[in-house]
Every structure is written in structure tokens, then in C-alpha cells.
Design a protein around this nucleic acid. Structure first.
Lengths: 110, 110
DNA sequence: GTATCACTTAGCCACATGGATAACTATAAG
DNA sequence: CTTATAGTTATCCATGTGGCTAAGTGATAC
């Protein structure tokens, strides 16, 4: 459901810098420059990663004076796990059908 | 862990065509042309999507005569859910710490 | 009030990605 | 043995992405 959201979400997670940002934010809110510090990268480059996370709904931020504080919104991850779990369920359903069929054939063979 | 795998995996899932391929394959193995049929796209373009799924370990394929049969390998999805679950766990741990701290302060105030 | 700090915006560049066509290979089918 | 089928390979193109520098803005600090 809502394909474009999954696009943005999975794409946001498909980069080590952005995953590191998410991981860092699980420990609490952080300013942009503190978030950027461990990443060997110019600020504008780093900001692009942040905006992609915001676009995906994973991070929100508020301005406090001249600094911007970022907050994680882990609920956004649910869309990803929901999709993945749905695929696993379909796969299991298929295995169950195959097993049922196998039993059926076995029964008829006797 | 194994960052480059997560890169490929999340990137593979960040496209509606590729997610549709995965969903289709949960129902059983399919030849390339049958897989491609519902997608309004030239075969070579479609094949690129397939190769990205194979590169991510989500799909494998074998050749039977002149046709190629694709199989889903849903175990590959585990890397994604493991990472996501780890983030959720970190987030919960943080909430717990905050709650403990709040109780502590409350106690001292009395 | 001037310097500094913490972003922000604008623009540039190399390379990746998603799409296409055209031409090729290998296995059936007739 | 010729034709059709099912992929495959090689190129090409437009756009997106991840990085950069340079210059701007607005809030603090001195």
C-alpha cells in the first residue's frame, strides 16, 4: 500500500550514512552538526542525507535558535516491516499449499 | 552488519517493479518472460531489475533449455528485518532509560 | 555592532539508475 | 534446415544521487 512511501523509505535505508544517522537518533535527539560530526563529509552533502530521511518520514526536526534538532520517528519503519512480513506470509502460504498437495498425492497413491 | 549487503537489499526493495517481482515469486517459480509480462517495459530493462534482485540475494535463477526460471529466496529479507528490529530495540531502550530517570527524579522530589 | 557559529542555498561534477533499441545466441518446433 | 522463441549483450540517453565549493542568512557571543 502507498508504493511511493515504500520507495522513499527503502531508498532512505539503502545508504550506510543514513542508516548510521537513524542508529544515532535511537539514542536521543541531536543537533545537525553533532549528527554530522562522525561523518567525513561536507555539511551540505550531509544535509541531503538528512532531507531524504525526513522525506521518508523517519526523521523530523525543529529549529531552536540557530541550531536544528533532529528526532527519530521509528513508526515510519512499520511500513517496511509490514511489506516484508506480507511477502513472508505469502511464501509460507505457498509452502503450505505444496505440502497439502504432496499429502494428497501420497494418499491417492496408496 | 555487512553494510554492503544491506545497501543492495534495501536498494533492491526501493522500486515498485522489483517489489512486484518479489510478490509474484512468493506464489512460485516463474520464467523470465512470464515474470516480465505484466510489466510494460522492454525485456532488457526488465532484466536489469531481475539482476539487481539477484545481486541482493533475493532471487536466484536456473536455465532450463532456452528459458530461465526464477526462484525467490526470502531468507535474504532477514538482514533487513534484523537491522530494523535492532533500531527499534535501541529506541525502546532509550524510552526505558528516560522513564527510569523520570521516576528517579520524582522520588528525590518527595 | 561586529565577529562567529550553525546552518542554508545555489550551482557544479562524476557516476549510477531506469528506461530504450538493435543486434546476437542458443534452443525448440515445423 | 529453416523459422520462431526466449533470452542476452551492447549501446545509448535522460534523470537521479552523492559528493564538492562558494556564498548567503540569521541567531549568539564578545
Amino acid at each position: 500500500m502507498d508504493n511511493y512511501k515504500l520507495d522513499a523509505l527503502f531508498a532512505a535505508l539503502a545508504d550506510p550514512t543514513r542508516r548510521a544517522i537513524v542508529a544515532r537518533l535511537t539514542a536521543g535527539d541531536v543537533s545537525v552538526s553533532a549528527l554530522a560530526d562522525p561523518h567525513d563529509m561536507a555539511l551540505p552533502s550531509f544535509l541531503k542525507h538528512l532531507s531524504r530521511l525526513e522525506a521518508a518520514g523517519l526523521v523530523r526536526s525543529r529549529k531552536e535558535g540557530r541550531t536544528r534538532i533532529c528526532t527519530l520517528h521509528p513508526e515510519a519503519l512499520a511500513a517496511a516491516t509490514t511489506w516484508i512480513d506480507a511477502q513472508r506470509a505469502l511464501w509460507e502460504a505457498r509452502l503450505d499449499r505444496m505440502e497439502a498437495l504432496a499429502l494428497d498425492i501420497e494418499r491417492k497413491d496408496q
